[in-house]
Design a protein around this nucleic acid. Structure first.
Lengths: 341, 341
DNA sequence: CCCAAAAATTTACGCGCGTAAAAATATTAT
DNA sequence: ATAATATTTTTACGCGCGTAAATTTTTGGG
């Protein structure tokens, strides 16, 4: 960093000995200028620490390089993890990601979408709240902004959908549980926030019927996104009332399972597959925390990398002009065997 | 939403029957125009769904309404929670928050700061990585942008510091442990990422000496931000080698404690204060997850609301012109008694 | 060395809004 | 009602950059 402060691209062009339109071209796409020009500009950037004014840049551009990433709840490490993954893929492809959380609130989700619209982003990666979402608002947004839906599918809106194959998830882990012990009961929320939960229940029922077992679904009360507490309270009641018809419980997701494990602990019910254990508990999601429960949680994990990779690639392709019909991609999960089941 | 699309403020001013400069004034501060004018503008906004172009708005403004929020690691629910809190306080005060995570990487932290600088924010709420931070970069940033440091203090830079009183934290929970059973050993990382860890160790040693007990600090290896795994591996070794001189372990933070609990589980060491238990474990932070460990973790919790409130208020006051000398505010935590200790 | 193609330069305009200054109008106090 | 004050309107310019068109320069191949 030498010399006096550069105020704008005009001045920067002068000191770097390149014309302003060429410099502008460079900032829009460094590969669009000749290599020798590029290195001269880059030397000048290095020397004068110049960065174009992002507001002036985006004002006249039809398409900014901004990408919005929206998740339902950033304080859920699952979403935090996938958001981080997406963020870095955006950066790697030269986009400027901005992270938003709906904080589990449909009104906030709409506000986020409004904010996003004002940003005129090149595209948006959106994980909707699900059941609570204002569907019409999402639909309208998708019409204005290239949007790829991930994690939880809401009709056929946007450019497409990328997420996990919930049928495969539940089918696979139900299979595992059936083969290694008593067939599982299914532990879920009565009114889940997320539509994936319905698919998982259906898949459980189908898998059980394939095995010739009687499905047993325990649906517990509770609203909102405090899944652990819902699992703990519901689990407490279920254990007390002896509502689990077998010694194995498959939870609709890991966070519920974490709550159920706490309920088991509090009632002295030993969890695991040892001979001294009275219940097996499994989750679904491969939640970052599942490794550290006691006992460590058997679960079926999202393929975080593949989901974010596929989602980001699909969005970037669409941004760069590729037109493809609406498409749903559902990736398989992999079983993580631990001590809980 | 009626009529055709409004393209810019000029058109919007025309249809709303107000002059453009007045409309501009309204968008900068709705209270700066007469109530009757305000309601006419608001009616027109309602009707035409107009929003000014944020890029054009910010281009000429000396001070945008943007506020940056930077945390070291968004996938840590503690930071996610405090970030959420700060975000909503910004919104409530009419600022536009943007969330950033350094993802535990000092180079990324510097990049975030560069991005932030380009946004010309009114102010920034920054929780530094700590030990790994590029101190000179932080210092330079604080000179350019009004920055309030929170969570983890790095010299006397920025407008001030707001965080928890780590001495009080450790002193308080050490007191509790000493009074209710054997005095605690202290379980920590040898090279912690966060400077708060040093304060906590010092405070532990001081508290033990006050009681006339011999301090016993167990420092385990491990780099980075995977605290649970570090706690689990370090805990595993410590238990195996019988390195805890008493039956009580105070962990430097909750995430280490969570890992230690897993290590205990894996070695069949029963944790809690019951007669059948062989070890007591306590954490520090009041991590969102601490309620759901097995056994639930006794800890001393940050006052999330007060920290974010104080930090946000201090920043907003400075933005609005209030000049105050650099000041460090450290808030007390409160003990959360659960079954682990 | 010449020529066609590629790249850079010159010139010029416009984006949407902030903002300043002077004039006109509305509101409030006297 | 009148003066004093607060608000709004009119007018006008500029911010920093995107971008288009015409021109000039550079490049690489034969």
């Amino acid at each position: 960093m030498t010399g006096q402060k550069i105020r704008n691209m005009e001045e920067f062009a002068r000191v770097s000995g390149i014309s302003r339109p060429t410099v502008s071209k460079y900032f829009n796409d460094p590969t669009s200028v000749r290599a020798s020009t590029r290195s001269r500009i880059e030397a000048a950037i290095e020397q004068h620490d110049y960065r174009p004014n992002i507001y002036a840049m985006n004002q006249n551009r039809k398409l900014t390089k901004n990408v919005g990433i929206v998740v339902p709840l950033l304080s859920d490490p699952y979403f935090a993890e996938i958001a981080r993954n997406l963020e870095q893929r955006c950066l790697a492809d030269g986009y400027r990601p901005t992270l938003f959380s709906s904080h589990g609130d449909a009104a906030l989700e709409v506000e986020v979408l409004d904010t996003l619209r004002a940003m005129k982003p090149a595209g948006v990666l959106l994980a909707p709240l699900g059941r609570a979402s204002d569907y019409r608002a999402l639909e309208a947004f998708c019409k204005d902004v290239p949007t790829l839906i991930f994690d939880s599918s809401v009709q056929e809106i946007g450019l497409g959908f990328v997420g996990s194959d919930n049928f495969q998830f539940t089918s696979h882990i139900t299979d595992y549980l059936c083969r290694t012990g008593e067939p599982p009961c299914f532990f879920e929320m009565k009114t889940p926030a997320n539509p994936n939960a319905h698919r998982r229940r259906q898949s459980y029922v189908a898998a059980m019927e394939r095995f010739g077992f009687e499905p047993d679904v325990i649906s517990v009360d509770g609203e909102g996104w405090g899944f652990e507490e819902i699992g703990r309270l519901g689990g407490y009641e279920a254990i007390k009332q002896n509502r689990f018809s077998t010694n194995t419980v498959l939870c609709s997701n890991d966070r519920l399972a974490i709550g159920l494990l706490t309920a088991c602990y509090e009632q002295g019910v030993k969890v695991g597959r040892g001979k001294d254990c009275s219940i097996r508990v499994a989750g679904q999601d491969g939640h970052p925390h599942s490794r550290y429960t006691c006992p460590p949680l058997t679960t079926i994990s999202h393929n975080y990398d593949a989901v974010s990779q596929t989602a980001a690639d699909a969005l970037f392709a669409a941004i760069e002009g590729q037109v493809t019909p609406w498409k749903s991609t559902r990736l398989e999960g992999s079983l993580i065997l631990r001590d809980s089941a």
